[in-house]
Design a protein around this nucleic acid. Structure first.
Lengths: 184, 184
DNA sequence: TCAAATATGTTTTGACTCGATACTATTAGA
DNA sequence: TCTAATAGTATCGAGTCAAAACATATTTGA
């Protein structure tokens, strides 16, 4: 009863948030800004836009636009207009941004705490939480945000890997990233 | 890599937060206020104070004081001065408060999502997350907030159950609640 | 073809969160 | 006794957030 799964997740999230807040102080970064930055470092070229971050964080685009503006002002990300569609702006994490993430994300003490789990236990936890997350996303009608590699549209051909949705070629690095168009 | 445990937890927490925000709209309640209310409905008489909520949520007491003021103004909690120590104010969840929690906490769609797990899987996930949470709390030097029943100070005597810390008698309901003084 | 609808993103506004700081009241302890 | 510690409140400024209005760019479809 007192150990409801949702309670555990909220408590872990609260602690993570707290540690994140501390680690962001050196650069004056808020937790939500760090979450956006982290997301941008893990997503592919179809998913590095304001709207994708909006969907990922579950906020409104106006709110996210503000946070991204701050990240840009601190030179942690840079904005690049899309060549084909001029409405779209791609958000690239700068070297400084990656540097910051490497030091702080995931938070050190959390990483330490995980070492109490065995390899198998950690894998098991991830697997089960992924299942819950996937179901929850579906129930709330939210975008799945899965890894390119495991997407329905990802196709291996004799010429290499292809995205069936965009018809573009994908590198071996590409397919490790998170995509907002992900479909099971 | 893309499925880091901390990433999964943050994403689940973001979705929970979003659903919580929606469910709080009817009463004009913010997510953090609902978290405080929920905590107060699960804690024992040693842990129903402003400072305990502060520790639990990992915020500062000024911030929490404001949130509690709003909960009181909406008649979801009531404040009762401690008889012995006049500095202390106990926070009781009112009937209206419990009514609200029963409807919204945990969020319906999250509960639905969990049903994708078997009983064993859910238990396993809880067990492992509890382990991580416990370690994380210890690493960050935070209060443990465990269930009274499993605390070191909980002692069963011929006269009933006793708290060795406060030397007070505990009922069978008491020992199911969360205590800030919890020690493994 | 070209106007209407749609999509991406920014700005503004007002309510709220949050940490920091200063403050009051009460209790503990040397 | 009288100083330090503890519980809690009040205020401030920076930032989050949703909502709405807005500016561009693209797509749709008559």
């Amino acid at each position: 009863m007192n150990d409801e799964l949702f309670n555990l997740i909220e408590r872990l999230a609260n602690l993570l948030r707290q540690e994140t807040r501390l680690e962001g102080q050196s650069l004056g970064l808020q937790p939500i800004q760090q979450e956006a930055l982290y997301y941008l470092s893990t997503c592919n070229r179809y998913s590095d836009t304001t709207l994708a971050v909006t969907e990922f964080l579950g906020l409104t685009k106006g709110t996210v636009s503000q946070s991204l503006k701050i990240l840009e002002s601190k030179a942690l990300i840079s904005k690049v207009k899309d060549k084909k569609d001029k409405r779209i702006t791609h958000l690239n994490v700068t070297e400084a941004g990656r540097e910051f993430l490497k030091k702080t994300c995931p938070p050190q003490k959390f990483t330490d705490a995980i070492t109490s789990l065995s390899i198998d236990e950690e894998f098991e936890t991830k697997t089960l939480l992924k299942k819950v997350l996937s179901n929850y996303q579906q129930a709330t009608g939210r975008t799945a945000f899965g890894v390119c590699q495991h997407c329905k549209f990802n196709r291996k051909t004799s010429d290499g890997i292809l995205c069936d949705l965009t018809k573009e070629a994908l590198s071996s690095d590409d397919i490790m990233l998170i995509c907002r168009e992900y479909v099971v």
